[in-house]
Structure formats: structure tokens, C-alpha cells
Amino acid sequence: LEARLEAADLFKKVVEAIKDLVQHCNFDCNDSGIALQAMDNSHVALVSMMLTADTFTPFRCDRNIPLGIDLTSLTKVLRAAQSSDILTIKSEDAPDVVNLVFEGKDQDRISEYDLKLMDIDQEHLGIPDTEYAATASMPAADFKRICSDLLLISEAVSIECTKEGITFKAEGDIGNGSVTLRQHSDLENSDKNVDISLTEPVALSFSLKYLTGFCKATGLSNQVRLCLSNDVPLMVEYALANNSYLRFYLAPKIGD
């Protein structure tokens, strides 16, 4: 494997966004890119990352290799990379380490780290292609704000999506709160759009602790997409350049 990123920032942010949800995971490398799928310990949430080969310049991977990585250790190594550094990830055929090289833009500094790999026997879930009943795109910063505000009221949020908009409701001991985002297009700045497509109304409840955790990915994308169908897990997607993505799945709460 040899994969070079123009800026370490992307990889630093991806790892930062998932390291509190999953501790150990395989980065599955093959000629299409670097993929990761891992569930949290409680089996309530799942993270699915895809960094396509086109994300890297260049990308080369001659055969499938899983790189079993302790994300806490990887975070320590990535601290040594500045956001603007060129990052190269390298690995041999049957590796016991992964090699990370950080180069300053002006090429007067080269840092090189070897991170020990681990054998991880990971459960892999098959996630079917789903036609969701409702899809809502909104500014990622708005979603983060709504989740953190409502977490102060309750540990659970009910998300209701209709043609008019998407409503987040929390009921807690101190009272209730709700936030509605109405569909609109911002002609000056499409990053501010709220876009809803719906085949049927949806209402589901989720844990805010997990949703606020997913929001650690906010810096990766201006917009976030929520995909919902009644009685199936929510998908929260942060789309990245070159068809790469960071997706989170969260099991719905069951009614009282």
C-alpha cells in the first residue's frame, strides 16, 4: 500500500471523528481505496468510512490488506502531523506496522512514524442499499447545534420528517424543546440549504449521546444528510470529496 494525501487534515479529522465511538478497527485497503466499518461496544452505532482511491494522489494497493489499528495510538501519531502536511500511508504485504510519513509543504521537514498493527477479528455487518422514506440535508453546524442544545433537555430526541420540514423534539424533566428546520434553498450559499425529500412521513427516536458523538465529524463537510425510514437505523452521512464519505448508523429506540 502507498497512499498519499495532499493534506493530512482530512485523515486527522476522520480519525478524530470516530475514535471515541470505536477503539480498535481494521482499515481495509484494496485497489478501490481505504474502507473501515466498525460497531461501538454496545452494538447501537456503526461507523462506515470510505476513502476512495481518487482521494489520494497517487494511490496504489496491490492486494487486499486489513490494517488493524488502535485508534488511540493512531491519534498520538497523527498529532505529529500538521493539518497542511502531505501525508503518505505505506504498508508492506504482510505488515506488522503501518508507516506514516508527514512532509511539510515546503519539504524541509519529514517526519516518519511506524505504528504497530494488531490482529482484529471484527464482526462485519452487511448494510443493504436502502431506499429511505425521508432524506434531509442541512448545514452540518445546525445539526450539531440542535443535538447539543436538546441533549441539555433530554437523552433522547424524536425526529419527525414531513414535507414541511424536519422537527427534532426532546422531552425532559425540566420541560420540552423542539427545533424545526423548514426546507429552503439559499441562492447565495448552497451550504445553507435545507433540502427534504420524502416518500412518507417518518417519526423515530434516537439517543442524543450518540448523535452528538457523530457531530464530531462536523468539520469534514458543510452539509450533513440524515436518511430515515420508520423502524430502521438512521444513517447520518458526511459526504467528502471524490465520493468518499463518513457514515454513521444508529439503531432507533423502541417505544415505551
Binding site: 447501537v44 456503526l46 464482526e123 455487518l125 452487511g126 437505523p233 439503531a251 429506540k253
Partner: peptide, 14 residues
Amino acid sequence: TPLQNDLSEFFAMV
């Protein structure tokens, strides 16, 4: 508070 589902009820292991 509603109970929390388990993801593996929705997605089969592969």
C-alpha cells in the same frame, strides 16, 4: 425513556 435497539437486529453479519 425508550429502550435502545441493537443494530445487529437490522443488519445481518457477513
